[in-house]
Amino acid sequence: MLDATDQQIIEELAKNSRITMKELGEKVHLSAPAAAARIAKLEDNHIIEGYSIRINQDNLGYPLHTFLTIFTKNTSHQPYLAFIQTKQQFVVNNYKISGQGCYLLECRFPSQADLNQFLNALNDYVNYNLSIVIDK
């Protein structure tokens, strides 16, 4: 079970995973070595599994943000999954879900034309329900 200090460490790392151990220690009232030891323990216990960066997709030229609820046409999902592998430049996440649909596909596109081309090709494999993100 995590104590309050471990929770604080996780919150601070979520805000800025590049924080120095000295800065982190000051924020959670520990020495730098004690903060580093706590992080090592969280990693060893697989509480912290990795560190990542946030990318501004708009600035990369992918301003069109979509979610597609995917409905497979048959029990074999492999054709759809193989298609998605060929479109990784657009795919952010592909979640297998229960409830409405089989997958929730999150994508980013540089233009409406690219989205339309993707949807036309996607329709060969699955049916879908499209949602476009208006604001975050």
Results as ranks from 00 to 15, higher is better:
K15E: 12
K15L: 13
N16P: 02
I19E: 04
I19K: 05
T20L: 01
T20I: 02
T20K: 02
M21L: 12
M21G: 11
M21D: 12
K22P: 00
K22H: 07
K22S: 08
E23H: 04
E23K: 11
L24R: 07
L24Q: 09
G25S: 01
E26M: 07
E26N: 13
E26P: 00
K27E: 10
H29D: 13
H29T: 06
L30C: 03
L30Y: 06
S31R: 04
S31V: 01
P33V: 02
A34N: 10
A34W: 01
A36V: 00
A36I: 00
A36E: 09
A36N: 12
A36Q: 14
A37D: 05
R38M: 05
R38P: 03
I39E: 08
I39M: 13
A40N: 13
A40C: 00
K41S: 11
K41W: 00
E43D: 05
E43K: 15
E43T: 12
D44A: 15
D44K: 15
N45I: 00
H46Q: 13
I47M: 02
I47D: 01
I47Y: 09
I48S: 02
I48Q: 01
E49H: 04
G50M: 01
G50A: 02
Y51Q: 02
S52Y: 11
S52E: 07
I53L: 11
I55G: 03
I55T: 10
Q57T: 12
Q57Y: 11
D58M: 08
L60R: 13
G61P: 09
G61M: 03
L64K: 13
H65T: 10
T66W: 01
F67L: 12
L68K: 09
L68H: 12
T69Y: 06
F71M: 11
F71W: 07
T72A: 09
K73R: 15
N74G: 14
T75N: 13
T75C: 00
S76T: 08
H77R: 10
Y80G: 06
Y80K: 05
A82P: 00
A82Q: 14
A82D: 15
A82S: 14
F83C: 04
I84Q: 10
Q85A: 13
T86M: 04
K87T: 08
Q89I: 08
Q89L: 09
V91D: 05
N94T: 10
N94F: 05
N94P: 03
Y95I: 04
K96A: 12
S98C: 05
Q100V: 10
Q100C: 03
G101L: 01
G101W: 04
G101Q: 05
C102F: 09
C102D: 15
Y103A: 08
L105H: 08
L105T: 08
E106P: 00
C107S: 12
C107W: 00
C107E: 09
F109N: 05
P110Q: 10
S111T: 15
S111M: 07
Q112K: 14
A113M: 09
L115N: 05
N116L: 09
N116D: 15
F118W: 07
L119D: 06
A121F: 02
L122V: 10
L122A: 11
D124N: 14
D124A: 13
N127K: 11
Y128Q: 06
Y128H: 14
